[in-house]
């Protein structure tokens, strides 16, 4: 593990922070601190240049206009592309997940994405709102995914991205699969503070970022109770 502090960047909170997205940054910082891993958090606004040397990047949900603007600025900036090329970990949520793909729809128009995930997104016929549940790709070795989804998009995966989970409740990408991952990039429709219900995903990001095979266990009694309650609340797909 590096002796330097872990650097966590929250991308464009001025544009992509619809609902509780700050939670993911707070949870990562907290789980690092409780293990004695020094961590620094940075909120990078859309009028600032994107640093390429951080370890974990978080990008959240947002409305159509800010989503399109965020994609344009990230493409023009190039910092996130460089960070990913250098092996940074990324957690992308909802609008942030869509814009990492090749293209997405915002305000009725097709917009170019960053192309960091091999996905394309378009509009579904109905809005997906409610509890989301899925069995995560066994290669990631994580317990079930639980989240709340609220999106109008549908996402299609190319050959170079794997579904993050198989849907067992809710819609996700298309009612069959949910989210995507490739390398150290994760994307999910579990919106807002997804890590609150999925501390194992937080720890996966911390392991990727630190290179540690395992992390000291934390007391997740409350998170486990929350998970049980919400997993039971999701309607089976």
């Amino acid at each position: 593990m590096s002796t330097e502090a872990l650097r966590i960047v929250w991308i464009y909170p001025d544009l992509l922070s619809t609902y509780g997205d700050r939670g993911n940054m707070l949870i990562l910082a907290r789980r690092a601190a409780e293990r004695g891993i020094p961590a620094e958090t940075y909120e990078v606004r859309s009028d600032q240049s994107m640093p390429h040397t951080a370890d974990i990047y978080l990008i959240g949900g947002g409305e159509d206009g800010p989503q399109a603007l965020a994609a344009q600025r990230l493409i023009a900036d190039g910092g996130l592309h460089q960070a990913v090329a250098q092996g940074a970990a990324v957690l992308s949520i909802c609008a942030g997940y869509q814009l990492l793909g090749h293209s997405f729809f915002a305000k009725g128009a097709k917009c170019a994405g960053l192309g960091l995930l091999d996905i394309t997104s378009d509009r579904g016929e109905t809005r997906a709102v409610g509890e989301l549940r899925g069995e995560i790709d066994p290669r990631l070795g994580l317990p079930a995914l639980t989240g709340f989804e609220n999106h109008g998009g549908r996402t299609h995966l190319g050959a170079h991205a794997a579904p993050l989970a198989r849907v067992t409740g809710g819609i996700g990408n298309d009612g069959q699969t949910e989210g995507a991952w490739a390398g150290k990039i994760l994307g999910t429709y579990s919106h807002g503070p997804a890590l609150a219900r999925n501390p194992a995903i937080a720890d996966l990001l911390l392991r990727w970022a630190t290179g540690a095979d395992r992390l000291a266990p934390l007391d997740d009694t409350w998170a486990d109770r929350l998970r049980s309650e919400r997993l039971a609340a999701a309607t089976p797909a």
């Binding site: 509780g20 409610g130 709340f148 609220n150 919106h191």
Partner: peptide
């Protein structure tokens, strides 16, 4: 509202 995400705001 069915969503509790706002707790983190």
């Amino acid at each position: 509202g069915l969503d509790t995400s706002w707790l983190y705001d």
